[in-house]
Write a protein that binds this DNA or RNA. Structure first.
Length: 112
DNA sequence: ACAATGACTGAAT
DNA sequence: AATTCAGCCATTG
């Protein structure tokens, strides 16, 4: 499983840039990378993120609805909610409240 | 090499 | 509004 600097690294990097108390969606990242339809690959990249020596705040990445779909894949699902709440993100049944305001759009924040 | 799967999303029904 | 379908492409059996 050779590691080419491609989707993985890019996704990891973008996710790492997410400020505390902010969240983003897979689609937003994928779109920023130029693959608006490859949101799934972003999720896979996250899964790999646990395997690399790269601290990636995957807990700040949720689906387009602000739902913590990936919480179950964490080493400890509760960790995701806890981390988010700890950073000031309001959660409700694994869903991010005020998602629209907490949403961190790389295409805008980074403004290319 | 082929088939199935997956932390998604948007459109269609 | 809820469910289903199709596209996306890397990883795995």
């Amino acid at each position: 499983m050779e590691n080419k600097e491609g989707f993985f690294s890019m996704v990891h990097q973008v996710v790492r840039l997410i400020p505390e108390g902010r969240v983003t969606s897979y689609g937003a990242i994928a779109k920023y990378l130029g693959a608006p339809r490859s949101a799934r690959m972003v999720g896979w990249a996250m899964n790999s993120s646990f395997n690399v020596d790269n601290p990636v705040p995957a807990h700040r990445v949720v689906n387009g609805q602000g739902l913590l779909t990936g919480a179950a894949q964490f080493p400890e699902p509760k960790m995701m909610e806890r981390l988010l709440e700890k950073e000031g993100v309001e959660l409700k049944n694994n869903k991010v409240q005020n998602f629209a305001e907490l949403f961190w759009n790389p295409s805008i924040e980074l403004e290319l």
